[in-house]
Protein backbone atom coordinates (compact mmCIF):
# COMPACT_ATOMS: atom_id res chain seq x y z
CA UNK A 1 0.00 0.00 0.00
CA UNK A 2 1.21 3.46 -0.92
CA UNK A 3 -0.39 6.61 0.41
CA UNK A 4 0.92 10.16 0.38
CA UNK A 5 -1.15 13.09 1.61
CA UNK A 6 -0.13 16.70 1.08
CA UNK A 7 -2.19 19.38 2.81
CA UNK A 8 -0.50 22.07 0.73
CA UNK A 9 -1.67 20.38 -2.46
CA UNK A 10 -0.55 23.35 -4.54
CA UNK A 11 3.04 22.07 -4.18
CA UNK A 12 2.11 18.99 -6.22
CA UNK A 13 0.26 21.16 -8.74
CA UNK A 14 3.30 23.42 -9.14
CA UNK A 15 5.73 20.52 -9.51
CA UNK A 16 3.68 19.06 -12.34
CA UNK A 17 3.33 22.44 -14.03
CA UNK A 18 7.11 22.74 -13.86
CA UNK A 19 7.86 19.45 -15.62
CA UNK A 20 4.88 18.46 -17.77
CA UNK A 21 5.95 20.27 -20.94
CA UNK A 22 9.54 19.08 -20.69
CA UNK A 23 8.97 15.41 -19.98
CA UNK A 24 6.03 13.51 -21.46
CA UNK A 25 6.31 10.20 -19.62
CA UNK A 26 8.20 9.34 -16.48
CA UNK A 27 8.22 7.03 -13.48
CA UNK A 28 7.88 8.09 -9.88
CA UNK A 29 9.98 5.93 -7.59
CA UNK A 30 8.33 5.59 -4.21
CA UNK A 31 10.18 4.33 -1.17
CA UNK A 32 10.02 4.87 2.58
CA UNK A 33 12.21 7.96 2.16
CA UNK A 34 9.89 9.68 -0.31
CA UNK A 35 8.97 10.09 -3.97
CA UNK A 36 11.45 10.86 -6.72
CA UNK A 37 11.55 11.11 -10.47
CA UNK A 38 14.31 11.41 -13.03
CA UNK A 39 13.70 11.92 -16.73
CA UNK A 40 15.24 13.41 -19.85
CA UNK A 41 13.31 15.68 -22.15
CA UNK A 42 12.33 14.10 -25.47
CA UNK A 43 15.36 15.52 -27.30
CA UNK A 44 17.78 14.31 -24.57
CA UNK A 45 19.32 17.72 -24.06
CA UNK A 46 18.18 18.21 -20.48
CA UNK A 47 17.43 16.08 -17.46
CA UNK A 48 14.99 16.81 -14.66
CA UNK A 49 15.25 15.33 -11.20
CA UNK A 50 12.49 15.79 -8.63
CA UNK A 51 12.59 14.72 -5.01
CA UNK A 52 9.91 14.98 -2.35
CA UNK A 53 10.87 13.72 1.09
CA UNK A 54 8.45 11.55 3.05
CA UNK A 55 8.70 14.17 5.86
CA UNK A 56 7.28 16.77 3.52
CA UNK A 57 3.96 14.95 3.39
CA UNK A 58 1.35 15.21 6.13
CA UNK A 59 0.83 11.48 5.92
CA UNK A 60 3.16 9.08 4.15
CA UNK A 61 3.04 5.31 3.96
CA UNK A 62 5.03 3.12 1.59
CA UNK A 63 5.01 -0.59 2.46
CA UNK A 64 7.27 -1.59 -0.38
CA UNK A 65 9.15 0.19 -3.15
CA UNK A 66 6.96 1.09 -6.11
CA UNK A 67 7.61 2.48 -9.56
CA UNK A 68 4.67 4.46 -10.89
CA UNK A 69 5.10 5.07 -14.62
CA UNK A 70 2.74 7.61 -16.09
CA UNK A 71 1.97 10.21 -18.67
CA UNK A 72 2.86 13.45 -16.90
CA UNK A 73 0.74 15.65 -19.13
CA UNK A 74 -2.37 13.62 -18.21
CA UNK A 75 -1.44 13.68 -14.54
CA UNK A 76 -0.88 17.45 -14.70
CA UNK A 77 -4.20 17.94 -16.45
CA UNK A 78 -6.06 16.12 -13.70
CA UNK A 79 -4.14 17.73 -10.86
CA UNK A 80 -4.81 21.12 -12.43
CA UNK A 81 -8.46 20.55 -11.53
CA UNK A 82 -7.57 20.58 -7.83
CA UNK A 83 -7.98 23.92 -6.10
CA UNK A 84 -4.91 25.69 -4.72
CA UNK A 85 -6.17 25.13 -1.18
CA UNK A 86 -7.07 21.48 -1.73
CA UNK A 87 -5.52 18.64 0.18
CA UNK A 88 -4.15 16.12 -2.35
CA UNK A 89 -3.73 12.42 -1.59
CA UNK A 90 -2.06 9.90 -3.90
CA UNK A 91 -2.90 6.24 -3.28
CA UNK A 92 -1.84 2.99 -4.92
CA UNK A 93 -2.15 -0.65 -3.90
CA UNK A 94 1.06 -2.74 -4.05
CA UNK A 95 0.37 -4.32 -7.44
CA UNK A 96 -1.09 -1.23 -8.94
CA UNK A 97 -2.00 -0.74 -12.56
CA UNK A 98 -3.47 2.62 -11.62
CA UNK A 99 -3.22 5.24 -8.92
CA UNK A 100 -6.01 7.12 -7.19
CA UNK A 101 -5.85 10.86 -6.69
CA UNK A 102 -8.08 12.39 -4.04
CA UNK A 103 -8.73 16.13 -3.77
CA UNK A 104 -10.39 17.50 -0.65
CA UNK A 105 -11.28 21.18 -0.69
CA UNK A 106 -10.65 22.71 2.77
CA UNK A 107 -13.68 23.46 4.91
CA UNK A 108 -15.95 21.60 2.54
CA UNK A 109 -17.55 18.21 2.66
CA UNK A 110 -16.64 17.11 -0.86
CA UNK A 111 -14.13 14.55 -2.02
CA UNK A 112 -13.03 14.40 -5.63
CA UNK A 113 -11.52 11.14 -6.75
CA UNK A 114 -9.70 10.32 -9.98
CA UNK A 115 -7.96 7.20 -11.20
CA UNK A 116 -5.02 7.29 -13.57
CA UNK A 117 -3.75 4.30 -15.52
CA UNK A 118 -0.11 3.44 -15.00
CA UNK A 119 2.32 2.59 -17.78
CA UNK A 120 5.27 0.24 -17.99
CA UNK A 121 8.14 2.48 -18.96
CA UNK A 122 11.62 1.14 -19.52
CA UNK A 123 13.25 4.32 -18.38
CA UNK A 124 16.99 4.24 -17.89
CA UNK A 125 18.50 5.96 -14.92
CA UNK A 126 21.42 8.28 -15.59
CA UNK A 127 24.22 8.64 -13.09
CA UNK A 128 24.95 12.25 -12.22
CA UNK A 129 28.61 12.57 -11.22
CA UNK A 130 29.51 14.53 -8.08
CA UNK A 131 30.90 17.84 -9.30
CA UNK A 132 32.65 20.72 -7.57
CA UNK A 133 31.22 23.57 -9.57
CA UNK A 134 33.42 26.57 -10.39
CA UNK A 135 30.57 29.03 -10.08
CA UNK A 136 27.42 29.06 -7.96
CA UNK A 137 24.88 31.83 -8.31
CA UNK A 138 21.84 32.20 -6.07
CA UNK A 139 19.26 34.68 -7.24
CA UNK A 140 15.55 35.44 -6.89
CA UNK A 141 13.67 32.95 -9.05
CA UNK A 142 11.49 35.68 -10.60
CA UNK A 143 14.65 37.51 -11.67
CA UNK A 144 15.99 34.40 -13.37
CA UNK A 145 12.62 33.90 -15.08
CA UNK A 146 12.70 37.46 -16.37
CA UNK A 147 16.28 37.20 -17.62
CA UNK A 148 15.43 34.06 -19.61
CA UNK A 149 12.18 35.45 -20.96
CA UNK A 150 13.53 38.84 -21.96
CA UNK A 151 16.74 37.57 -23.55
CA UNK A 152 14.81 34.99 -25.56
CA UNK A 153 13.09 37.92 -27.32
CA UNK A 154 16.50 38.64 -28.86
CA UNK A 155 18.32 35.35 -29.30
CA UNK A 156 18.14 31.57 -29.01
CA UNK A 157 20.99 31.05 -26.61
CA UNK A 158 22.45 32.82 -23.63
CA UNK A 159 26.09 33.10 -22.77
CA UNK A 160 26.71 33.15 -19.04
CA UNK A 161 30.03 34.61 -18.05
CA UNK A 162 31.14 34.83 -14.47
CA UNK A 163 34.23 36.65 -13.32
CA UNK A 164 35.30 38.70 -10.31
CA UNK A 165 33.20 41.69 -11.27
CA UNK A 166 29.94 39.74 -11.42
CA UNK A 167 27.86 37.59 -13.72
CA UNK A 168 26.72 38.52 -17.19
CA UNK A 169 23.94 36.92 -19.21
CA UNK A 170 24.15 37.90 -22.87
CA UNK A 171 22.55 37.01 -26.15
CA UNK A 172 22.70 38.04 -29.78
CA UNK A 173 20.21 37.62 -32.61
CA UNK A 174 19.09 39.15 -35.88
CA UNK A 175 17.65 42.17 -34.06
CA UNK A 176 20.76 42.97 -32.14
CA UNK A 177 22.01 41.97 -28.74
CA UNK A 178 21.14 42.19 -25.08
CA UNK A 179 22.82 41.57 -21.80
CA UNK A 180 22.08 41.62 -18.10
CA UNK A 181 24.75 42.09 -15.51
CA UNK A 182 24.19 40.87 -11.98
CA UNK A 183 26.19 41.86 -8.96
CA UNK A 184 26.08 40.35 -5.51
CA UNK A 185 23.68 42.20 -3.22
CA UNK A 186 25.15 43.84 -0.14
CA UNK A 187 22.54 43.42 2.57
CA UNK A 188 20.90 40.25 3.79
CA UNK A 189 17.75 41.75 5.26
CA UNK A 190 15.61 40.35 2.43
CA UNK A 191 17.06 36.88 1.82
CA UNK A 192 14.49 36.07 -0.89
CA UNK A 193 15.69 39.03 -2.94
CA UNK A 194 19.41 38.40 -2.44
CA UNK A 195 21.89 37.66 -5.19
CA UNK A 196 24.98 35.73 -4.09
CA UNK A 197 27.80 34.78 -6.41
CA UNK A 198 30.59 32.36 -5.57
CA UNK A 199 33.35 32.07 -8.12
CA UNK A 200 36.24 29.61 -7.79
CA UNK A 201 37.23 29.99 -11.41
CA UNK A 202 35.85 32.28 -14.13
CA UNK A 203 33.65 30.57 -16.73
CA UNK A 204 31.97 31.35 -20.05
CA UNK A 205 29.27 28.92 -21.16
CA UNK A 206 26.36 29.00 -23.61
CA UNK A 207 22.93 27.42 -23.19
CA UNK A 208 19.71 27.19 -25.17
CA UNK A 209 17.17 29.69 -23.80
CA UNK A 210 14.28 27.46 -24.84
CA UNK A 211 15.15 25.00 -22.07
CA UNK A 212 15.90 27.67 -19.48
CA UNK A 213 12.43 29.09 -20.11
CA UNK A 214 11.01 25.63 -19.45
CA UNK A 215 12.95 25.40 -16.19
CA UNK A 216 11.69 28.82 -15.11
CA UNK A 217 8.18 27.35 -14.91
CA UNK A 218 9.26 26.13 -11.46
CA UNK A 219 9.46 29.76 -10.28
CA UNK A 220 6.33 29.46 -8.11
CA UNK A 221 7.96 26.63 -6.13
CA UNK A 222 10.69 28.72 -4.58
CA UNK A 223 11.60 32.38 -4.14
CA UNK A 224 15.25 31.58 -4.89
CA UNK A 225 16.97 29.53 -7.58
CA UNK A 226 20.58 28.43 -7.80
CA UNK A 227 22.69 28.04 -10.92
CA UNK A 228 25.81 25.85 -10.71
CA UNK A 229 28.33 25.98 -13.54
CA UNK A 230 31.66 24.49 -14.51
CA UNK A 231 33.56 24.42 -17.77
CA UNK A 232 32.09 21.98 -20.32
CA UNK A 233 29.59 20.27 -18.01
CA UNK A 234 25.79 20.62 -17.77
CA UNK A 235 24.39 23.61 -15.93
CA UNK A 236 22.34 22.79 -12.82
CA UNK A 237 19.29 24.92 -12.10
CA UNK A 238 17.89 24.07 -8.68
CA UNK A 239 14.68 25.08 -6.95
CA UNK A 240 14.55 23.96 -3.32
CA UNK A 241 11.05 23.33 -1.97
CA UNK A 242 10.34 24.37 1.64
CA UNK A 243 7.43 23.74 3.98
CA UNK A 244 5.66 26.33 6.14
CA UNK A 245 8.40 26.12 8.78
CA UNK A 246 11.01 26.76 6.07
CA UNK A 247 12.35 23.21 6.31
CA UNK A 248 13.58 21.69 3.08
CA UNK A 249 11.13 19.07 1.82
CA UNK A 250 12.41 18.48 -1.67
CA UNK A 251 13.74 19.97 -4.88
CA UNK A 252 13.51 20.19 -8.63
CA UNK A 253 16.89 20.10 -10.34
CA UNK A 254 17.24 20.67 -14.03
CA UNK A 255 20.44 19.78 -15.86
CA UNK A 256 21.15 21.33 -19.25
CA UNK A 257 23.92 20.30 -21.63
CA UNK A 258 25.93 23.31 -22.82
CA UNK A 259 26.25 24.46 -26.41
CA UNK A 260 29.79 23.82 -27.52
CA UNK A 261 32.01 24.81 -30.42
CA UNK A 262 31.46 22.53 -33.40
Amino acid sequence: MFEARMVRGFIIKRILEAIKDLVSEASWDCSTSGMSLQAMDTSHVSLVSVSLKADGFDKYRCDRNLTLGMNLASLAQIVKAAGNDDVITIKAPDDADKITLIFEPKSETETWEYEIKLMNLDSEYLGIPETDYSVKINLPSHKFQRICRDLSQIGDSVTISAAKDGVRFSTTGDLGSGNVKLNQTASADKPDEAVTIKIEEPIILSFALKYLNHFARATALSPQVSLSLSKDVPLVVEYVIHDDDDDEIGYIRYYLAPKIEE
Partner: peptide, 14 residues
Amino acid sequence: KKGQVSITNFFKPT
Protein backbone atom coordinates in the same frame (compact mmCIF):
# COMPACT_ATOMS: atom_id res chain seq x y z
CA LYS B 1 29.31 28.24 -34.38
CA LYS B 2 28.12 26.50 -31.26
CA GLY B 3 26.05 23.35 -31.38
CA GLN B 4 23.83 21.61 -28.88
CA VAL B 5 25.08 18.35 -27.41
CA SER B 6 23.08 15.68 -25.62
CA ILE B 7 22.93 15.31 -21.84
CA THR B 8 23.94 11.67 -22.37
CA ASN B 9 27.40 12.92 -23.39
CA PHE B 10 27.87 13.76 -19.71
CA PHE B 11 25.59 11.45 -17.75
CA LYS B 12 25.74 7.71 -18.41
CA PRO B 13 23.13 5.05 -17.67
CA THR B 14 23.71 3.40 -14.29
